[in-house]
Simulated assay, not measured.
Amino acid sequence: MSHVEAVAPTDGGLPPAVPRPPREKFRSTVVLAIFGTILFLPTGILAAIELRRAARARAEGDVRRLRTHLFRGRVWALTSLGFAAALVIVGFGVLIVTANNHAVWTVFFDPKVIADNFGPLLAGFWVNVKLFLVAEVAILVWSVVVAVVRDLPGRPAAPLRFLAIVYIDVFRGLPTMLILLVIGLGLPRTGLPVVSGLSNFESALLALTLNYGAYMAETVRAGMHSVHPGQESAARSLGLSHLQTLRRVILPQAIRNMIPPLLNGFIMLQKDTALVSVIGVVDALSQAQTSANYTASLAPYAGVAMFYLVITIPSGRLSDYLIARNRAKTLGKV
């Protein structure tokens, strides 16, 4: 018969004492704190304070306090190293900007050149804004249609599924610039009704919709597949058709998971609208090229870059917020 041997308690019935942390860990933390103090004094001092407390706890035999203060000391020491690395990078950037009698600042960031050309640059950027606002709606609708067609069940829908797959593979595999050139410069030469009469703006809209629709369709399809299959089974058991199940059950739940990746895709779209100048759309980039040729300065390009950053940075932060909120909901923290 098997039996379990009991471990005799020590020190008057108390469990054995928890072993102290290795001496090497204390020494390594001291070394980190010294480097941290040298490289970035404020957080280095905080690391030294925590090490002093850890040494006091070690002398008193309080293992829990020792480990706590050692951990805090390492965190503050590593924070000092992070601040020091960041300061080195920032200092290197400042050195580049100020080198050679502020040559980089003069060439790229001349405020007078940017101010003199602000009006035309803003007018050109408004064209980009209108383009990506309209394109976002068109892409969203088109991508949902393609994703639904690709997921149609049954043998009768196999030809449509095949066409959807071919479309996604082709337009995901072609560069955006090539699609713009083919549609913006090639279709007008065909003489076909409707497509040959498209304006440059409309050709750019069509090219971006077809290109990004292929990417977004896969994002939408992934969002639809993120919904538990039991939801579809329950809806079908209640007598709903496949399309009714998608509209009333699957898509409403999938939207929450699709918003962050769709928003990231739209941020990429906002930047890629700068490519439409190759087919004759008078946007911010084409205005910047004209201004740069006239002023013999690259500052107009920096002005356009600032316009894009004003749009894309808030969009990126919104995407991060939505991702964090969805994660919190998934973990039950909201």
Rank of each mutant, 00 (worst) to 15 (best):
M1S: 15
M1H: 12
H3G: 07
G13T: 10
G13L: 11
G13P: 01
P16S: 12
P19V: 07
R20T: 05
P21N: 12
R27N: 13
V30S: 04
V31L: 10
L32P: 03
A33Q: 01
I34G: 03
G36E: 00
I38T: 13
T43M: 06
G44P: 02
L46P: 01
L46T: 01
L46Y: 05
I49Y: 00
L51C: 06
A55C: 10
R56F: 13
D62W: 05
D62K: 09
R65T: 10
T68I: 10
L70F: 00
G73W: 03
V75F: 11
W76R: 06
L78E: 11
L78K: 04
S80R: 05
G82C: 11
G82D: 04
A85K: 09
A85H: 04
I89G: 04
V90H: 08
G91A: 05
G93E: 01
L95H: 15
A99E: 04
N100Y: 13
H102A: 15
V104I: 14
T106I: 11
V107F: 10
F108Q: 05
F108V: 08
F109N: 02
K112C: 04
V113G: 06
V113F: 02
A115N: 08
A115P: 01
N117K: 13
L122C: 10
L122T: 13
N128I: 04
F132Y: 13
V137G: 11
L140C: 08
V141Y: 09
V141P: 08
W142R: 07
V145S: 00
V146H: 07
V149P: 02
R150M: 13
L152P: 04
L152S: 00
P153E: 03
P153G: 05
R155S: 04
P156W: 08
P156D: 10
L160G: 14
R161S: 06
L163T: 08
A164G: 08
I165S: 14
V170S: 06
F171W: 03
G173T: 09
T176Q: 12
I183N: 06
I183A: 03
L187D: 05
P188M: 08
T190W: 06
V194I: 15
V195F: 05
L198C: 03
S203G: 05
A204S: 12
L205K: 03
L205G: 10
A207K: 04
T209R: 11
G213K: 05
G213F: 03
Y215Q: 01
M216Y: 07
M224G: 00
V227M: 12
H228W: 14
Q231Y: 09
E232C: 11
S237N: 09
G239M: 04
S241T: 15
L243S: 14
I250E: 08
I250Q: 06
P252I: 14
I255C: 12
R256K: 15
P260E: 02
N264G: 15
I267G: 04
T273D: 02
A274I: 00
A274M: 02
V276L: 05
V276G: 01
S277Q: 15
S277C: 14
V278Y: 11
V281G: 06
V282K: 15
A284I: 02
L285Y: 06
Q289N: 13
A296K: 00
A296M: 10
A305D: 00
T312C: 00
T312W: 03
R317E: 15
S319I: 14
L322R: 01
I323K: 13
A324M: 14
A324F: 11
N326E: 15
R327C: 11
L331Y: 08
G332Q: 07
G332K: 08
G332D: 07
